[in-house]
């Protein structure tokens, strides 16, 4: 255990990295599921079936990354888990009810017809929407240091709309890969429109974070970190431009480039996430509690890490298997 120096230092750091990875994977993977749910309201009934087929085999495993992320917060940083979740009590409840509705609507809509099905379609849309909005709101309040005043709530509402836009973008990008014909053209249009939400959101978060926290201001605009950090916004701007151009030329006749928007969007998410992670390190509750203060005992963390090192590659393996089995354009989903 002393292989890498003091375990009370490197173990919390390793767990913060694992947790960060789980959140990022969750935001990308369940982000596209939730995004497809939000776009549901703009689709015809036949398109809705196809859209659900595009995410049906995956959503369950995608949502498990949220369980892993909150589980890691719970087990590795129990004090932070309590503080963050009691502060976000109401938005967490809204998100959970949203995720419940979204998850069960998948199953129920497949087993009903007519007006019943229309009702579950609505539940699917509303569940996806409220889960996305509350996640965005929580992100905003978290950036604002978990305080709820008129200003922070307003900022929370802004990030709520922007993250929802982001999910819409990645959802539309996923549909561009998984669909063809009219629905694919529609998805390209949806992606173009949601792009504005993403630009607005990235801008708002980038402006607000240093203004709220003098520590973050310090971290961003002092020498030499400003040079080290500069590639992040520059790359994001470049990627946004490439994405914009790509969406203008899609769908292409041979469907060779349909994967481009999804990859760019996922990279954008990863860049934004690393920026946030860099800004908040070493705090896990902004400005109040560091990773090291809130970590569990090293012996317990070590036991979990041991399991994680063996199991995570296996998890990644069968995740890849599942995506390979259901690769290609989405077709009708049947149990047969």
């Amino acid at each position: 255990m002393t292989l890498f120096g003091d375990p009370a230092i490197w173990l919390p750091l390793a767990f913060a990295a694992l947790m960060g990875l789980s959140i990022l994977v969750y935001v990308i993977l369940d982000g596209f599921d939730l995004g497809v749910g939000i776009l549901f309201s703009f689709a015809t009934d036949a398109e809705k079936d196809r859209m659900v087929a595009a995410i049906g085999p995956f959503w369950d495993a995608n949502e498990t990354w949220l369980v892993l992320a909150v589980g890691l917060l719970l087990v590795a940083f129990p004090a932070a888990h309590g503080t963050i979740l009691t502060a976000l009590y109401l938005p967490v409840a809204v998100m959970l009810i949203g995720l419940i509705l979204r998850g069960v609507a998948f199953e129920f809509r497949a087993k009903t017809t007519g007006s019943q099905k229309a009702r579950w379609n609505l539940a699917f849309f509303l569940g996806s929407l409220s889960a996305s909005l509350s996640q965005g709101y929580m992100l905003g309040i978290y950036i604002m240091g978990l305080e709820q005043t008129a200003t922070t709530v307003a900022f929370g509402l802004l990030t709520a709309v922007c993250l929802t836009g982001g999910y819409g973008l990645i959802g539309a990008s996923w549909l561009i890969i998984k669909t063809e014909g009219r629905l694919q053209t529609k998805a390209v249009n949806w992606a173009r429109r949601s792009l504005w939400g993403v630009i607005l959101g990235l801008g708002a978060v980038s402006l607000a974070s240093p203004l709220v926290s003098s520590r973050i201001f310090e971290k961003w605009f002092s020498f030499p970190s400003i040079i080290l950090l500069a590639p992040l916004p520059l790359m994001s701007a470049l990627l946004l431009f490439v994405l914009w151009t790509a969406l203008k030329h899609l769908p292409d006749s041979k469907d060779r480039w349909s994967w481009v928007p999804f990859c760019i969007t996922a990279t954008l998410f990863a860049l934004a996430f690393s920026g946030l992670a860099y800004s908040f390190y070493p705090y896990v509750v902004p400005e109040k509690l560091t990773l090291y203060e809130s970590a569990s005992a090293p012996e317990s963390l070590f036991i979990i890490l041991l399991g994680a090192i063996f199991v995570l590659p296996v998890i990644i393996g069968y995740t890849i298997l599942a995506y390979t089995v259901f690769r290609g354009k989405a077709t009708e989903l049947t149990y047969d």
């Binding site: 892993l68 719970l74 590795a76 569990s296 979990i304 994680a308 199991v311 995740t319 599942a322």
Partner: peptide, 25 residues
């Protein structure tokens, strides 16, 4: 948490992903 944490983590790692990934198939 030092006892409950690892037990819950092992549930997520060894069971949840296994179920969720193969459920689709």
């Amino acid at each position: 948490g030092n006892v409950a944490g690892p037990l819950l983590a092992y549930e997520v790692l060894t069971a949840f992903f296994l179920e969720a990934a193969f459920l689709g198939i």
